[in-house]
């Protein structure tokens, strides 16, 4: 994919919210969180929210790194592997007591959730999304404007 900065932001906000949101809604009830349903949802959507909000900062970094590439592209593998630092950072944040939501997470519950969201969004963005959004790949990932 050849992202522009705006395209990265659109993707992170809209597509992660929509695709990730649908997935999170489906998977939250069956996650091994040992929490009541409501709390499980709260935890899951907090994680999704963090992927999006912190993601906006990550995207700035990725965009900077992209400038060192002659093709100004972003290889698929980078998109996939970005999950490693991003997932780790959120895990660390949730683990410190500074987080004001105070969501109790089990490692298993968290990683199942994070990895599955990441994979679902990555697979969708790697191809199928083009069926619905025909112009997106030609606009650096932008959805409108």
């Amino acid at each position: 994919m050849t992202y522009s900065l705006a395209g990265r932001m659109h993707t992170r906000i809209v597509l992660f919210a929509v695709i990730g949101g649908i997935w999170t809604a489906l998977i939250a009830p069956i996650l091994p969180t040992r929490l009541p349903l409501g709390r499980s949802y709260e935890m899951s959507f907090t994680v999704l929210g963090l992927i999006i909000v912190l993601g906006l900062l990550w995207e700035l970094l990725y965009h900077l790194l992209q400038q060192y590439r002659w093709d100004k592209d972003w290889p698929t593998a980078f998109s996939l592997l970005a999950g490693v630092p991003e997932g780790t950072l959120i895990w660390l944040l949730l683990g410190t007591d500074t987080w004001f939501w105070d969501v109790p997470v089990t490692a298993r519950g968290y990683w199942l959730l994070f990895v599955s969201i990441w994979l679902v969004v990555w697979v969708a963005l790697s191809g199928p999304i083009r069926v619905l959004l025909v112009r997106r790949r030609w606009r650096g990932g932008k959805l409108f404007g």
Binding site: T2, L5, D71, K72, W138, R139, G140
Partner: peptide, 15 residues
């Protein structure tokens, strides 16, 4: 260079 032009001319920063 992989393609005729740097890849982002077909829909990225360079376009």
């Amino acid at each position: 260079q992989a393609f005729d032009d740097p890849k982002a001319v077909w829909g990225g920063q360079l376009r």
